[in-house]
Design a protein around this nucleic acid. Sequence first.
DNA 1: ATGGCTTTATGCTAAAGA
Length: 254
Amino acid sequence: MLAATWNVNSIKARLDHVKNWIGTNRPEVLMMQELKGESFPADDFSALGYNNAFVAQKAYNGVATLSPHPIEIITDRLPGGDSDEQARYLETRIQGVRLINIYLPNGNPVDSDKFTYKLAWMDRLIARITELRRQADPFIIAGDFNVIPEDRDCYDPVVWANDALFRMETRRRFRTLINLGLTDAFRVFNQEASQYSFWDYQAGAWPRNLGIRIDHFLCSPTLADRLESCHIDKEPRALEKASDHTPVLANFSG
DNA sequence: ATGGCTTTATGCTAAAGA
């Protein structure tokens, strides 16, 4: 099963890029983040042979999962936040695999309630995954985590030291997820530094390769055993009017 | 980055992103 995650930074602005990418790669699962609007172009993806599930809101956030296979929606809210209206979580089942598509809050600036919200959101995610780990059900969490896991995942750890994506409170919670028995799929196959999934639009970050790795696949143990490859596809980042993120792909046997 | 770009919204500028 070929699965992919891609923060598209507006599905409306990126529709042609996404359609072309699907046509070239034909993933069995595509999890997208930052739809940035209430409407979703379901017909465009139906025409390519893809079913969809999505959760969206006006202007911000929004996640969608596409597949040529039937999609069972388990929940479109991260449990534990009754007053949380933000469209950042979509849990589905496709081909017997639970696919958890997330757009984890950015959290900047760190002296604001946005950082508090981010950390609380991560605590809720940890609680949800703790519950799922009590079951045998195989699952994948994929999406824009807004977490730089380690020094080697950014171009300059000093620059990022006090950023919400790299603060110790954030990284510690990411490690807690890993320590529940999950596998960072990308690092199974690639131990090199400077392997990025995001480059800022500003200051020539892309041509200078000043990026960060914040889009991740975390796999439960039985799916980690089935991992055949995981890589970052940098090609879409080089296009005109590109998203600032680029797709990450993971392939599983069976 | 104390913000150099991009997107949304119903706009003549602000907010958010990372």
